[in-house]
Computed example of a mutant assay.
Amino acid sequence: MKRILDCRASDFRRMDREALKGAMLAAEGRTVIAETVVTSQPLLPELTNAELAKAFGADMILLNVFDVFQPQVRGIEARDLFAPEVGGGEQKPEARNPIAELKRLTGLPIGINLEPVDDSAEAVESLNQLPEGRRATARSLAEAKRLGCDFVCLTGNPKTGVTHERIQQAITLAKREFGGLILAGKMHGAGTRGSVLDREAAIGFAEAGADVVLLPAPGTVPGVREEDLAQIIAEVKARGALALAAIGTSQEGADEATVREIALSAKRAGADVFHIGDAGFAGMAVPENIQALSIAIRGRRHTYVRMAASPLR
């Protein structure tokens, strides 16, 4: 089993769910997932945020606010600021499936967020109804499979009313309809009251079949301490799941020292996978913070290899 550290685009193209999970496990706490908002104007309009995140050390790309029934990713059609095109042209064939195109451009596994919204939840502040293409439904999960997503993340954006109960139900649905790698959990309240770091919920996600249980990293949500996280991670791993520590409360836009401190704390707690969110600049983390996270958990060598590795390898 290759470590994800040693995997290149040709390896990722051959991987199924079990192989990808095994590669993440074999890396021993050295996997980086970077999240980007597909509807934002990219930080650099000449390319997608996914490409930029890969260039700064991400191993996997998680797309946020992606609608499977209206799939689009800003930046696939690059903009030249000094010679903007007038009018529209025919869409390139590869751009009709942006998941396939991002895989070609980055050479990395690509996944999406799907949100298990609880319409009965007492949300702190509710958003308007989410379209089905962003919700974790049987149809959207089947469409994610058809588009070629390598993984789905069952979680909630701010104010959406996603609950632990709905996440657990969505895991069962995803196992039936999607079949790829399943990440599940909450990195913040997602508009509902109650504890984000919930031991029973995390165990429930693992027992329901989540491959990776998502938990907030220490210092990202009030009251999440390293020792508490370590205890929950141990129980999640005992049930065969990997543990992901998420930076999902806009600290992806903090200074590099803060990101390094959070990363090392999460690694001491036992995290297998490290997520960095999309609320830095223009729908992605500050690029240097992706690099700082990567260097903190695995050093310059593996970081530079990932940054430099061509998607043609």
Rank of each mutant, 00 (worst) to 15 (best):
K2C: 04
R3F: 02
I4N: 11
D6Y: 14
R8M: 11
F12L: 10
R17V: 11
A23I: 12
A26T: 09
E28M: 11
G29C: 12
T31G: 12
T39S: 13
T48D: 00
N49M: 08
K54G: 07
F56A: 05
G57D: 04
A58T: 13
D59W: 10
M60H: 04
I61M: 06
L62Q: 04
F66Q: 06
D67E: 06
F69S: 13
F69A: 13
P71A: 09
Q72C: 11
Q72D: 01
G75P: 07
E77G: 14
R79C: 02
P84I: 11
E94W: 14
R96F: 07
R96K: 15
N97M: 07
P98G: 02
P98S: 02
I99A: 05
A100E: 07
K103T: 10
L105R: 15
L105G: 02
T106E: 03
G107A: 07
I112H: 00
S120A: 14
S120Q: 10
V124D: 00
S126H: 08
N128I: 09
N128T: 12
N128K: 14
N128M: 10
Q129R: 15
E132V: 10
E132P: 07
R134D: 00
R134N: 02
R134M: 14
A138E: 10
L141S: 03
A144C: 07
L147F: 08
G156Y: 01
V162L: 01
R166D: 00
I167N: 04
R176K: 14
G185H: 12
H188I: 12
G191K: 06
D198L: 08
E200F: 12
E200M: 09
A202K: 09
A202C: 13
I203H: 00
F205N: 00
A206W: 02
E207A: 08
A208L: 02
A210N: 02
V213T: 08
G219A: 03
G219N: 02
T220D: 01
E226M: 11
D228R: 14
L229A: 06
A230P: 05
Q231R: 15
I232E: 00
A234N: 09
V236S: 03
A241P: 06
L244M: 15
G253K: 08
D255V: 15
V259R: 10
A266M: 07
K267N: 01
R268V: 07
V273Y: 06
H275Y: 15
A279Q: 12
F281P: 02
A282M: 08
L293R: 10
I295G: 01
Y304M: 13
S310H: 09
P311C: 13
L312F: 13
